[in-house]
Design a protein around this nucleic acid. Sequence first.
DNA 1: TAAAAACTTGAACAACTGTTCTAAATTGTG
DNA 2: CACAATTTAGAACAGTTGTTCAAGTTTTTA
Lengths: 214, 214
Amino acid sequence: MRNAALKADTSLQILDVAEALFSERGFSAVSLREIARQAGVVVSNVTYHHGDKIGILAAIYDRHTRPMNARRIELLGEARRIPDRADRLTAILRAYLLPAFTSSSDLMGGGTRFTRMRALLSAEGDPEAQRIIAQAFDQTTSQFIDAISECLPGASRGDIVWRAHFLLGALYYTLINPERIGRLSKGQITADDNETAIGQLVSATHASLIALSP
Amino acid sequence: MRNAALKADTSLQILDVAEALFSERGFSAVSLREIARQAGVVVSNVTYHHGDKIGILAAIYDRHTRPMNARRIELLGEARRIPDRADRLTAILRAYLLPAFTSSSDLMGGGTRFTRMRALLSAEGDPEAQRIIAQAFDQTTSQFIDAISECLPGASRGDIVWRAHFLLGALYYTLINPERIGRLSKGQITADDNETAIGQLVSATHASLIALSP
DNA sequence: TAAAAACTTGAACAACTGTTCTAAATTGTG
DNA sequence: CACAATTTAGAACAGTTGTTCAAGTTTTTA
């Protein structure tokens, strides 16, 4: 044994490795054996700690969803107190996006990892995974749509839902293809700059929403 | 043999089946055996006609890319003749989106099929597939960005690229998760209505772009 | 019609997948 | 220390994957 403190939590070590791999290649493309190998354990040890393969995914969601949603609601609360409607809308959008990039709490690696994993997952058909995704975030999303709605008198809720939907699609696509921006603009932009991405997402969505309110 | 006319082109039959399956479940999730079974042939016959598994994908791209890009360029040419800049921008966006929904030519099934397949593919890491995707469409995209740029005096090209990038992400996400809109708006919207989706994508992107030009 | 080309078939291959089982080792507890 | 619980290890399982090959069948060509 190399280190008692590390050895105690093989379970977390497995989750860390699995999360890193899932965020790179998606769920079905990663095998239990590769997770086990990188975690320095044997396959049966992985299933011992987390049961099914989908159990690993559920555990990863478990440790991220709560703090991430909490951070969002917290920032949303602050944003709602801004009197000017346009400024408030900007703050609401940032409250939605920031936790997706900075991740929940201080979990290692860039914060985009968990969000990118969710982006890849949303494109895989796995029904079990879809169920986990849906129940974890749709509720929070509804609260944001309500807050956005209050900034846009006269705008229909349906139109707002569409634009919030587009925001998520744009976010996911950016995380999945971070190099594509650079390719199209011939290397003048670096898309792995999170601050730039957030700013562009916010301003683009802000404009698309403001246009709904006369 | 049941029908001489059908039997002649097993190759096309295989492509049709493969395209339908890829657009439903993605590339890696579909096995050659399932393609073969649904096409009514044996596995080795599939590889005889198209070589690798990636060869099937390349063949599918081959028969779609050219007509789809041609239609786009044609519509783009018409759009460019519109004098009013705001109206022209709308026409340009529709010129980009329409061929993605109505598909190239009269190939069977809804036109969204090929586009949805590309959406799923963009989320899979497969390097070979990524190469095919990139070379097939980035060039056309550049032409559209140029046309958009002419509608927006004073707007930086980088900002435009970001918003075009977001448009593609929103489009893909909508095709991948067509039921999500309905879930969030509690069943008041049906997202499988292509006309609605196109209209929402156009108006949202239009607003996000117009805001760039003072 | 006879030879050549194009096509189809069935079987086999090596590799990999998630899951399960029993036995060994480690740890915690009295 | 001794006993029990937790954790790790290794092997085996039944199934699927993409690819290949030799032998047939059909169609085209000369």
